[in-house]
Amino acid sequence: MATLGRILVWLGDAASWCGSHIASAAAGVWNLLSGLLQPILSPLLGVTNPPVTWLADVYYSMFDGAPPAVGLIVTSVLTGVVMLIAFRYTSNQAGIARVKDTIKAELLAIKLYKDDLGVMFRSQGRLIGATFKLQWYMLKPLMIMLLPMLLLLAQMGSRYQQRPLRVDEATLVRLETAGQDATLSADGMIVEVGPIAGDDDVAWRVRAVAVGDHDVRVQIGDQTVSKTLSVGRVGEPVSVVRPAKRWTTRLLHPREKPIGESANVASITIDYPESDSWVYGSDWWVLTFFVVSMATAILLKPVFRVKF
């Protein structure tokens, strides 16, 4: 028992050592990649975000007055259908059919010749190869669908992850800046305390007093940067962050125009409360979306004669 314990601890230490190195390596790769993508994606998102947001708003206006879950379910079903059709035309359907046949054949071979080790191993090998090939065929449509999917998820996130403030509710406004003195003003809310600087940002505590979309204005030196604050409009989208030039922030928070470079501000954030609902509340909506859209795609596979 004691020896087993020592071995397990040793293995565990080794695994966590490897894990932390892999994680830091992955982070390095990501930083590099993100840096390379910054000059491409940041301006691209600057161009795509406004029309996509406009489209999403027009689309979601259909669900005005309906419970949030309706819009979420309908959108998930439609996404399932669109994914299916897109997959059909962007994937190598003939290739997929061939690989699936191979898989079936090899599975049969394994069953029939289970006493013949040679055949077994060869079939096993081919099976693994075929599985990889199937993954490979999936990759191209996945890459093509990735960006539209992310744009869609960002739009959905602004509707389901958080909710607008309620009147009389307090929250924090945070400003990521390079340390100048800043002042905050707005209609529809009162600034109760702040700014107080933390290690990474400067924060104010504000309390909502009136329903509506208000302009929060931050004065830094001679520059004024503003940000929308949504109060009391249940079901309306919220913009948690007004991004600056970082493409990741632009991708996740598409609703507001990026802050100009001269302002020396990396982002303005409002800590909206998370929505609480089992279907569309914080993080649940992602699960609902994937389950419903995948179920739709699987159910309609024969209808559209798609193979995957």
């Binding site: 924090l172 702040g194 107080i196 924060a203 104010w204 505590r205």
Partner: peptide, 12 residues
């Protein structure tokens, strides 16, 4: 006033 930062949450 004070600010308390704990586990990605801030309180003013």
């Amino acid at each position: 006033a004070t600010r308390i930062d704990v586990q990605d949450q801030s309180i003013l």
